[in-house]
Amino acid sequence: MKTSIWKLTQLPAWLVARARSERGDVPGWVLITLMTAGLVLLLWGVAGETLVSIFQESMKRVGIIGG
């Protein structure tokens, strides 16, 4: 019982220490986000009209847009 009480009292300190030690690689995540956005823009530029027509046709088939 005494051990479990000690563990509960140490929990906040452990959580704070863990949060500080795992902040992550912010520049890496920024780079991944920018690269993903670039790929989306490139794909949209190359196949945008086709993607829109595919979406519109599929919505027509299920009867949501344009009946």
Rank of each mutant, 00 (worst) to 15 (best):
K2V: 08
T3C: 02
S4A: 13
W6D: 06
K7D: 03
P12S: 01
P12H: 02
P12E: 00
A13F: 10
L15P: 00
V16C: 09
V16H: 06
R18G: 02
R18Q: 10
A19V: 08
R20K: 09
R20Q: 07
S21T: 04
E22S: 14
E22P: 00
E22Y: 11
R23A: 11
G24Q: 07
G24R: 04
G24N: 07
D25P: 01
P27C: 02
G28C: 02
W29G: 01
W29C: 03
W29V: 05
W29E: 13
V30I: 15
V30F: 09
L31E: 06
L31T: 06
T33E: 01
T33W: 02
M35F: 08
T36V: 04
A37Y: 01
A37P: 00
A37C: 07
A37E: 00
G38A: 15
L39M: 14
V40I: 15
L41H: 04
L41A: 15
L41W: 04
L43E: 04
L43M: 13
W44R: 15
W44M: 15
W44Q: 13
G45Q: 14
V46Y: 11
A47L: 13
A47C: 08
A47E: 03
A47I: 11
G48A: 11
G48P: 05
E49Q: 15
T50W: 12
L51N: 02
V52F: 12
V52W: 07
V52M: 11
V52D: 07
I54R: 10
F55Y: 14
Q56E: 12
S58F: 12
M59Y: 09
K60Q: 14
K60T: 09
K60L: 06
V62E: 06
I64Y: 13
I64A: 11
I65S: 06
G66H: 10
